[in-house]
């Protein structure tokens, strides 16, 4: 795709891999703080919620499982884009 070179072709802050690393580090840092936040309250719900950092661990595991299972599903479910093209229904 060709388009006028302005203004997008300047190098943005995000184009620098160093800055992306900074963002990732910041994410890890605030995640750690949120993890420690488990100390701030007593749970009113299910017993499992009393496990320190349950939500963090569960969120991480859930997302990894989600992506891995979805990736595996591709082997069965994925078809070329034109799969339904000739269908009349």
């Amino acid at each position: 795709m060709t388009a006028p070179p302005t203004p997008g072709d300047r190098r943005d802050w995000l184009d620098d891999a160093k800055n992306v690393r900074t963002i990732v580090r910041a994410l890890i840092a605030i995640s750690a703080i949120a993890f420690l936040g488990s100390a701030l309250y007593a749970s009113h719900g299910f017993a499992i919620e009393d496990v320190f950092g349950f939500y963090g661990v569960y969120g991480f595991v859930a997302c990894v499982a989600l992506v891995m299972i979805a990736k595996a599903m591709r082997r069965v479910l994925m078809r070329p884009e034109s799969y339904y093209d000739d269908d009349r229904y």
């Binding site: 990732v24 994410l27 949120a34 661990v57 569960y58 997302c63 990894v64 992506v67 979805a70």
Partner: peptide, 26 residues
Amino acid sequence: QLLLFSALAFTWLYRTHRYPPELPSV
């Protein structure tokens, strides 16, 4: 906590190339 660790999971999967790429497909 739930959301930030989900974001961490995404970041980890994406940066280690474990995240399934966007592919032209149905």
